[in-house]
Amino acid sequence: MAHRSALPSKPCTVCGRTITWRKKWERDWDAVRYCSDACRRTGVRSTDRELETTILSLLAARASDATICPSDAARAVGGDTWRDLMEPARAAARRLVTAGEVVITQGGAVVDPSTAKGPIRIRRVRRG
């Protein structure tokens, strides 16, 4: 059996977490889009797209090497109920990582968004 890191993978279209190839998906791997039934049911909502846009606009208003916390975007979109938007904000950041727009850091180092636990920061991708 191949080591897990040698197997094909792709991001979930909803949460941005990594989906790793499984034998049962051999015939329809190209059609696999979701990491779980919860992501399949939920889909990407307008609030999720608004969080993505807010993350990008918050970063655009700061220095090129500045970072933001997902809570900054959640507060901007959710107002008083921002805490309910924390996981959607993290998912929006993961989707933006997949799109190549941002990176997720912890302690100043870029980390894999699928495995990052605890506090994270979001920074624009450094070009050049």
Rank of each mutant, 00 (worst) to 15 (best):
L59H: 05
A38K: 07
P113A: 11
A93F: 05
A31K: 15
T42S: 14
A66K: 14
E26T: 12
R121S: 13
K117L: 13
V44T: 13
T67G: 11
R62G: 12
G118T: 04
R127V: 12
A74M: 07
R83D: 13
P113D: 10
G79I: 09
G79Q: 06
R49V: 02
R40L: 02
S46A: 11
A74L: 07
K23I: 00
K117C: 04
D30K: 15
S36M: 09
E50P: 00
A31Y: 14
L58G: 00
V97L: 10
V111N: 03
A2M: 05
W25A: 13
G108E: 09
V14H: 08
D37V: 07
Y34F: 14
I122G: 00
A92M: 13
A74F: 06
R45N: 12
T20D: 01
E50I: 03
G79W: 10
L96C: 07
D48H: 12
C15W: 10
S64A: 14
R124L: 15
A91T: 06
W21E: 07
W21S: 00
T20F: 03
E52S: 11
T42D: 12
P88V: 12
R94L: 04
R49Y: 02
R83G: 10
A66N: 12
R95T: 08
T105D: 04
R4G: 00
G100M: 11
I55T: 05
V32Q: 11
I122A: 01
T47W: 05
P113N: 12
L58C: 03
V125C: 08
I122S: 00
A93L: 08
L56G: 06
G100K: 10
R95I: 11
V97M: 09
R22K: 15
W82R: 05
A2R: 07
C39L: 03
D72A: 15
A99S: 10
R126T: 15
P8I: 01
V110G: 03
D65M: 10
G100Y: 14
D37L: 08
R94S: 04
C39W: 01
E101G: 06
R49E: 14
S9D: 01
L96W: 05
M86K: 06
R123D: 03
T105A: 10
R4N: 03
M1D: 12
R27A: 14
M86Y: 11
G100T: 09
R33W: 02
E26R: 15
D72P: 06
R49T: 03
C69G: 08
R22N: 07
G78I: 08
S36Y: 07
G107S: 11
A6I: 01
W21D: 02
D84N: 13
C35Q: 01
L56K: 14
S5I: 06
R90K: 15
R126G: 10
